[in-house]
């Protein structure tokens, strides 16, 4: 019963942060601010969704001692780790590519990367 409440809280936190990330993707003015909102919030939300699944599998394994729930926990941990590592690297590559393709930040007054590359 208490694990049910914890799983529900983790799930609600994950969905809330995913919704905030998508809201930032829709509302922010240029690609860098959209990336700032989306990547961090969506990674955090998806990792929390996976954490809810991990706690749920742990409670089921505690109740039934069925080894398939150990498989569920380990595979979900691997998926969350893959998500957490690859999202940061891919957003970094996208930001660098956007700057190289000539997109300027909206309402920015300094551009240190452009000055250093010149």
């Amino acid at each position: 019963m208490i694990t049910d409440t914890i799983v529900l809280i983790c799930l609600v936190i994950g969905i809330l942060f995913n919704a905030l990330g998508v809201l930032g993707l829709l509302r922010f003015p240029d690609v860098y601010t959209r990336m700032h909102a989306t990547t961090k919030a969506t990674t955090f939300g998806s990792v929390f969704t996976a954490l809810a699944v991990i706690i749920y599998g742990g409670s089921l394994y505690y109740g039934t001692a069925d080894p398939q729930y150990i498989t569920l926990i380990i595979h979900t941990i691997i998926a969350a780790l893959a998500l957490a590592f690859t999202n940061a690297v891919s957003s970094h590559a996208l930001a660098r590519a956007a700057h190289k393709s000539g997109i300027k930040p909206a309402q920015a007054v300094v551009d240190r990367l452009g000055e250093a590359r010149r």
Binding site: V31, T38, T42, L94, S101
Partner: peptide, 22 residues
Amino acid sequence: TPADRALAVDTVNTLTVAVLIL
């Protein structure tokens, strides 16, 4: 811009992984 579309595709991929886990 194309970077916006690539970022949207990246977001869709991340959310798809969460949906598959659920």
